[in-house]
Design a protein around this nucleic acid. Structure first.
Lengths: 321, 321
DNA sequence: ATGAAAGCGCTAACAA
DNA sequence: TTGTTAGCGCTTTCAT
């Protein structure tokens, strides 16, 4: 391997002058700089990143942490990666099986193997995670009110109310079923609040069919099986993501349920699944959320001032509702 | 930061003994080992990964390289990451805009910042890329016959013939349109061969509507626009991926085309899009492909013998054809 | 079985 | 403006 010492020798200067010429830090005369640069080019020198990382205690790598893969994770990753690339940061991805695995990643962070952390979803409590903010920026897609961890969250409460009100206006006090994510999540709690408010206002609407599927994989299928076997009469179902809604609808259709004739359906997040399958949904502008989150990391790291883009979600009415 | 020197001091031994005790390399007495380990635990010592990486000239990180994001990329990433995790390897993701960006990643590889390379798709020629195989294993999802780069490829020629024959058996010599990927790709070439063979055998079948969309994003929409404006009569369309087929079908349906009544449709790869939208397709067992590719990397790195799992693709007939 | 010492390649404090 | 030197934390010869 050709080192900076080789370059210095070839250019007839010292290691430090060569270093200064190459990194652009500190004083170097034009003459020396030129000598060093040509020598470097001639020898085909590239700085050892490993040495740089070790020396500088920073890797220019961001950890992207999710619990499992599902399509929205891929979308977030795409946006995040493409923004960070422009600033010379790499993205290392982790799927965490449990709190211990997540703790390992936090240790990597403490040891500077990662310069920032982008949580799609967490496993440990925020109070545990936020201790690590002293090592660099931590952001999360999940809603949290934690002061140290940045969350570009969208309040699901008014959004959910909007869906419910839309259904009421269009169809009256029909029975609405709900497919929700992890009940421990703040977004889920916000939705539950909206549901209970709505039920108070519209006592004739039965909103009691509520099922929870914290993992998106197969959630739609499981929910549909549940739906098909319940004795309750349900006229509409709201699902927490388009992906899950798509699988839900697909399974129901195979079982002969006509949508929207027999059952109205609402998704959430306006992904390709919603688009392609013509599912009514709410666009929460995932790309902008990812941008806010990623910019927050960059601004902290590069000491720039961060300004958040305000997101105004939009109801998208399509064929299913 | 607590270093190995601190541990050594606390344990009353030398740095090297401490290192041996912790890494498990070389001779250490039970007594010393115990002393070191308790000291390490008491001090909350964790080895500096950055120093280890620098010293060992290896990061235990694999580069995962794609051109753009589309759902199958996410799936591959999921499988790849989860396997590598078990062996203690991380995965860093890159989306390459052009050959220069890809070349940068290859440089990272040369400098040992990456221990292996998983190409979903490449930008430079394989003859350029394969020079880097001396730095570690390189595998690719794309079909290549390059000797140095491992490709767990599936021959699309017999698969495509299978689809064409199925259509012929079911519907006779109808006109078939083709939505293909990059014409420069080997998979596309294999498909074109199958098409020309088929046309020779079935001269009444018009197979001349062939369109190419190298990027999956929006490909389905563009193809549908093309389809809607062509003067040719097309009875069936085969699309190179379920994702693109899904968007294609979605757009056509919005424009009042009935599928399968007016148009038969065939996808490829059996993804969730195909499943949820009931599109006939071929299952190429992406998970197993990813497994072969990933295992190949691991086996090279860990000096184990690699055995490939043979994949037998399966036609999946659904609603659209 | 253990310790001393060298060195991976780079950067930065300090001296000149 | 440049060179000297130290040191980041670890592993690994080479002696002992």
């Amino acid at each position: 391997m050709v080192t900076i010492f080789d370059v210095a020798k070839a250019a007839g200067v010292s290691k430090s002058t060569a270093s200064r010429a190459i990194s652009g830090q500190g004083y170097v005369s034009q003459a020396s700089k030129a000598k060093v640069l040509t020598a470097a080019a001639k020898l085909g020198y590239t700085p050892s990143i490993l040495a740089r990382q070790f020396r500088g205690q920073s890797t220019k790598n961001i950890g992207f942490i999710a619990r499992t893969y599902y399509p929205a994770v891929g979308e977030l990753l795409k946006y995040c990666t493409n923004i960070l690339k422009k600033y010379g940061y790499g993205v290392t991805i982790y799927f965490t099986k449990d709190t211990a695995e997540e703790a390992n990643i936090l240790e990597l962070f403490r040891l500077h193997a990662l310069d920032g952390l982008f949580f799609v979803a967490n496993r440990n409590n925020w109070s545990y995670i936020d201790r690590y903010t002293e090592y660099g920026p931590i952001v999360t897609w999940r809603r949290t009110d934690n002061q140290k961890v940045y969350s570009s969250y969208i309040d699901h409460y008014p959004l959910y109310k909007q869906i419910l009100d839309y259904i009421y206006t269009e169809y009256g006090e029909i029975n609405i079923g709900h497919v929700l994510n992890d009940p421990a999540k703040n977004n889920t709690k916000a939705r539950l609040r909206a549901i209970s408010e709505y039920t108070k206002l519209h006592p004739n609407s039965d909103n009691s069919w509520i099922v929870y599927y914290p993992e998106q994989e197969n959630a739609g299928q499981q929910a549909s099986l549940n739906y098909l076997t319940t004795k309750q009469t349900i006229d509409a179902v709201i699902v927490y993501s388009d992906y899950v809604a798509a699988e839900f609808m697909s399974t129901l259709r195979v079982n002969g349920i006509n949508i929207p004739e027999e059952l109205k359906l609402f998704g959430f997040d306006n992904s390709d699944f919603g688009k392609f399958m013509n599912i009514s949904t709410i666009d929460t502008y995932l790309a902008i959320q990812a941008k806010n989150l990623t910019n927050r990391i960059i601004c902290t790291l590069e000491h720039e001032t961060f300004k958040e883009i305000t997101i105004v979600p939009k109801v998208v009415i399509r064929q299913t509702c």
